[in-house]
């Protein structure tokens, strides 16, 4: 079979739940070797989109092609090329890890002759060899998550769709799972959803921000990073000058004094403001002990992109923190 470069093509996806529109006019493509992040707050439409891509939910409108096969007209080969990890892990908790993965492989039409190898490979990649004979119900949350991932990759699909793969894990487990996803990204194309920006930044090559069912931004992670590039500096020092005198430095737009005596300097992104500040601090003896570039937060990016009101962003903010 020829190697296709475009693995997912979604065109004008729509989804209504009663009168509410959960997803509107959503189009995108996924190329081989990409790790694409769906970023958005809870309820933005990430899960709905993923359920449509995996055939769990029929779209109200639009078209989905997976690995060149239309999901509606030709569901069998289309679904065979996708592995899905839903947000709620689809685990039969009374089965052992080995029996469960065997069942998942058979369900995805792995030929009987290749079964042992497929299951062994999935277990090795997800670090499950030691628990192969344990009953899933008795595993820790982190291991259950790995079993969920193993289930998604056991038939070696072209595309992996992972809904909040690090949800509910502790920081060490999060790091392990991210490492694993990055590893899988080398041989598969991956879509993952998240409501935390650092996660998407850490794993993905491309990001799509979804807000209220609409695609508001689709670009490379490096471009997103640039967009969020620092536009302010925090200064701390033993003898900082008055804000007005810092104002004079080239590129500085505004200076405010914080309660603890530090200064926050807003500047444009063209000039090398930091460099000039350091030069001034050295020549005028400010006794500088802190110079921190501040990044735009995700909620600021949201405001820029969606023009949402401040109070909405406040809610968003709380959700992100949660």
């Amino acid at each position: 079979m020829e190697e296709r470069s475009t693995l997912i093509e979604a065109d004008g996806l729509q989804r209504f739940f009663g009168p509410t529109q959960a997803v509107q006019d959503f189009s995108f493509q996924l190329e081989r070797g990409e790790i694409l992040g769906f970023l958005g707050v809870n309820g933005a439409g990430k899960t709905t989109t993923m359920e449509m891509l995996t055939g769990n939910l029929a779209p109200s409108g639009g078209r989905i092609e997976l690995n060149g096969c239309d999901l509606l007209d030709n569901p069998r080969p289309a679904k065979a090329s996708v592995g899905y990890l839903p947000e709620t892990l689809p685990l039969y908790t009374t089965m052992t890890v080995d029996a469960y993965l065997r069942f998942c492989a058979r369900l995805n039409r792995v030929p009987k002759a290749d079964l042992d190898e497929a299951v062994a490979t999935a277990m090795r990649r997800c670090g499950l060899e030691d628990v192969a004979e344990r009953v899933i119900a008795n595993l820790s949350r982190g291991y259950k998550q790995r079993v969920g991932l193993a289930q998604a990759i056991v038939h070696d699909p072209e595309v992996l769709i992972l809904d909040e793969p690090t949800k509910g894990l502790d920081p060490i487990q999060v790091r392990e799972i991210r490492q694993l996803i990055r590893e899988l990204g080398k041989s598969h194309s991956v879509i993952l959803s998240s409501h935390v920006l650092p996660e998407v930044e850490a794993i993905c090559t491309r990001v799509q921000i979804i807000h209220e069912g609409r695609l508001v931004l689709a670009e490379d992670v490096s471009a997103l990073r640039a967009r969020m590039q620092h536009s302010s500096l925090l200064l701390g020092g033993r003898a900082l000058p008055a804000p007005e005198s810092v104002q004079g430095i080239q590129g500085v737009e505004r200076v405010e004094r914080l309660d603890d005596g530090r200064l926050r300097v807003f500047h444009d992104t063209q000039s090398d403001t930091a460099e000039q500040i350091v030069a001034r601090a050295a020549s005028e003896g400010w006794g500088l002990w802190e110079l921190t570039p501040e990044r735009k937060s995700l909620e600021q990016v949201f405001v820029d992109l969606t023009g949402a009101s401040e109070s909405e962003v406040q809610d968003t903010n709380e959700e992100m923190a949660a």
Partner: peptide
């Protein structure tokens, strides 16, 4: 939600 396993499979 284990039914998703079958819905997502061919």
């Amino acid at each position: 939600e284990t039914i998703r396993l079958m819905y997502s499979a061919p």
